[in-house]
Design a protein around this nucleic acid. Structure first.
Lengths: 242, 242
DNA sequence: CGGGGGCTTGATGAGACTCAAGAGCGGTGG
DNA sequence: CCACCGCTCTTGAGTCTCATCAAGCCCCCG
């Protein structure tokens, strides 16, 4: 539980500027946002909001990992989004949360009070434009995920998940790729619509088949990215590492 | 193949105004949109756009039903959206289509050339606001659907689908509810992440159990909506007919 | 050393898929 | 008018994937 001071003091040294809601803002607009923002840190495992809660803020993930999920009355649950740094939480114009948001690791958020934020979006087209882009990107991602949930096999699901992680978290290692999984096996199963046992078995199978190398349970190396791409079952047209 | 003239001549008598992209527009703004719009009708079964195609337009569904889907190299496919009248197709700021759009019934679209449409959104905050709302609504719907695809049983999937249809297409019939399904069994299976056989069997089971009454294959009556709600497995908090 | 959390492994079974055949129904043409 | 066709849908039998239930392992920490 390393307590690091992740909260930047001002927007000028903010690590997520390039991708965040404020990426296009002028200095002046940033000042506006600066007035209504506040940072807050959540412990790993803690809940940020629960479905049905009144939503008084929107926020950007500054550091750490959070999940967006929905559960059924009998306890079945499905993760519907993975929130990494620069991702946006909340929706202007809605009073209550439609999903649960949970901190998976220690999590730092840059909050904006909702009311004043809505005022800013109405007057600042830079923010509004970026908001549309973010929403549409998430929509594409959600739909891509629907294909995974509806039609892919367990092995393909795991491979697809690893690819997503590789794209956003991986670093080159020789001709392969190295990354640390942001989720436990349990969270992975929630994300992929599987059980933890199936996740474990398929990870073992991919390891056995040489698609990946495990070091502990979280650190993995992918010797051949194209091999993994095949396993994911996607049309491999133009899919590359960012 | 009844060829009806569904295309309104102008926005003033447009059936989808209240929900469409232009719902908040002033008369003046409507005139702007009017200049760049054109209607077009597609035959049932025909393709509107294919994934990867250059997207030169955006559009609203005026009449009929279309589907948004994605398929894998080996033919598996998953529908990721159902487009009913007033729904929006396309995304400003993207060059190529990310999904296939197919007309399921005869379909009339209100098209806007993309370039000029983008110019309008940049200057007309009414359109931009509505676009955000629509995108976020679809995102919510997509995430709801992820729960269905990842965690629900075949029976629950069918019940959930019928509920969605009932909400948007149903009409009261005594104390029950009557509707005509907008999709074939085959399209239903694509939507629900099932096979056509499973859809057929579960429809038969729901009929056998008295949850619904079938008249032919498309016309159904739901005697007791709460019964159907139970079958769908949703938290039934506050779910009502629109 | 004991305990707990996260993970793995094994045995079993259920739910959904696959393959295959046939029923219902509207259209077409002899 | 009826036979035939094509299409959608239904039904049945067998199979397979993944969920469930149940131990047990590994590793860290007290």
């Amino acid at each position: 539980m390393t307590q690091v001071d992740l909260a930047p003091k001002s927007c000028s040294n903010c690590p997520i500027r390039p991708r965040a809601i404020c990426s296009r803002c002028t200095d002046e607009e940033l000042n506006e946002l600066d007035k209504i923002k506040y940072y807050k840190t959540y412990a790993a495992g803690s809940s940020v909001v629960l479905m049905g809660d009144p939503m008084t803020f929107v926020a950007s993930v500054v550091a750490g990992v959070a999940t967006l999920s929905r559960s059924m009355a009998d306890g079945r649950m499905q993760m519907v989004g993975l929130l990494l740094p620069s991702d946006f939480i909340g929706r202007p114009g809605r009073e209550t949360a439609s999903f649960d948001v949970t901190a998976v690791s220690e999590l730092t958020l840059c909050h904006f009070h909702k009311k004043p934020f809505e005022k800013v979006t109405q007057t600042t087209s830079h923010v509004q434009e970026r908001l549309i882009e973010i929403a549409l990107d998430e929509l594409d991602a959600a739909r891509e995920w629907m294909l995974l949930l509806g039609r892919k096999t367990a092995r393909e699901k795991i491979a697809s998940f690893l690819l997503i992680c590789a794209r956003r978290l991986g670093s080159r290692e020789g001709e392969g790729l190295r990354l640390e999984l942001p989720l436990t096996r349990d969270a992975m199963s929630d994300y992929l619509g599987l059980t933890i046992e199936t996740v474990s078995r398929q990870m073992a199978a991919l390891k056995r088949d040489g698609v990946l190398v495990l070091e502990g349970t979280r650190k993995i190396t992918i010797p051949d990215l194209n091999r993994l791409l095949d396993e994911a079952g996607d049309d491999s047209d133009g899919v590359t590492l960012a």
